[in-house]
Amino acid sequence: MRKLSYTLFILWVSFVCPSCHNLGKTDSQTLPTELFSDGDLAFRRGTGFMSRIVVAADKNGTYSHVGILKKMEGEWHVIHAVPGEPEFKGDPDRVKIEPLTRFFSPERAVCGEIVRWGKDSLAAARAAQTALLMVQRGILFDHDYNLSDSSQMYCTELIEFAYRKEGIDLSEGRITHMDLPVVRGTYLLPSDLLLNKHLKTIYDFP
């Protein structure tokens, strides 16, 4: 019975999974970078199977991953906690910083959105600085998805943590309970953040 449930779940993810507008890819060179600010949030729907699981299981969501923008040496970067994207052999899953063009590359994103905390731009910029500190400290990815322990972090946990340092509660207490064949537990999903009414869209694609 468990094997049958798992098989049905895989079929459901493959064929019923909610989609971005038309699953188009972005040309990263066309990003309107002049519109962006430190602390803006970058949401994306990934290309992998786990991304499909997250989106399929999230009744409110389009996206499977999120990071925070920080301008470094004249180029926009994204700070995010991510598994399975090593930069070199032996690179552990961790909080990392990479160019926005790579974060939104066709190999990693089928759609995406940049949103802004609309109430305090200085607080948002400080949140980005807090996230950068997590990179510098070498914080590892939280494979246990434990929100009560900040010694390791997953993507939404990092964003929630950085903004909460500024007294901003992005999730407003929202949290998602999953009970699926391959995913069981309580998680802070991208949609739990994106539903905050004080976030406004700066750019999205496709």
Results as ranks from 00 to 15, higher is better:
Asp142Lys: 01
Phe9Gln: 07
Ala109Val: 11
Lys59Gln: 03
Lys197Ile: 15
Gly84His: 09
Asp27Gln: 01
Ala109Arg: 01
Val115Leu: 03
Leu4Ile: 14
Pro92Arg: 00
Gly112Tyr: 01
Trp12Tyr: 14
Ala81Tyr: 12
Phe104Met: 04
Leu69Lys: 09
Ser5Glu: 08
Leu189Met: 08
Ile114Phe: 02
Leu11Asp: 07
Trp12Phe: 13
Lys3Val: 11
Asp93Lys: 00
Ser191Gly: 07
Ile168Leu: 07
Thr7Gly: 12
Tyr6Ala: 15
Glu157His: 03
Asp169Lys: 12
Ser171Ile: 06
Gly84Tyr: 05
Gly118His: 11
Asp204Ile: 11
Gly84Asn: 08
Leu4Pro: 05
Leu147Phe: 10
Ala42Phe: 03
Val16Cys: 02
Leu122Lys: 14
Val82Thr: 11
Thr130Ile: 13
Leu199Trp: 12
Val16Pro: 01
Phe205Trp: 15
Gly185Asn: 07
Asp27Pro: 03
Arg44Pro: 14
Asn146Val: 05
Leu147Lys: 04
His143Val: 14
Thr130Ser: 10
Lys70Met: 04
Arg184Asp: 07
Val183Glu: 05
His198Leu: 02
Leu188Gly: 12
Thr30Lys: 02
Val13Cys: 10
Leu35Ile: 05
Glu73Gly: 04
Leu188Tyr: 08
Ser14Ile: 05
Met134Ala: 04
Lys71Ile: 06
Tyr163Met: 03
Leu8Pro: 08
Ser191Ala: 11
Asp169Cys: 10
Ile10Val: 13
Arg45Gln: 12
Ala81Leu: 13
Leu4Asp: 14
Met178Pro: 05
Leu193Pro: 10
Gly46Met: 13
Val82Asn: 07
Glu73Ser: 05
Leu188Pro: 14
Phe49Cys: 00
Thr101Arg: 02
Gly138Thr: 09
Thr33Gln: 02
Asp58Gly: 01
Arg164Ala: 11
Ala162Leu: 03
Ile114Thr: 04
Val183Cys: 13
Ser191Trp: 01
Leu35Val: 06
Asp169Arg: 09
Gly74Ala: 06
Ile10Ala: 06
Ala123Asp: 06
Glu107Lys: 09
Ser151Tyr: 04
Gly48Trp: 01
Lys119Trp: 14
Glu85Ser: 10
Ser5Gln: 08
Ile159Trp: 01
Leu23Ile: 09
Arg116Ala: 11
Ala56Thr: 15
Val135Leu: 10
Tyr203Leu: 10
Ser14Ala: 08
Thr130Cys: 09
Val54Pro: 15
Asp58Trp: 00
Val16Gly: 01
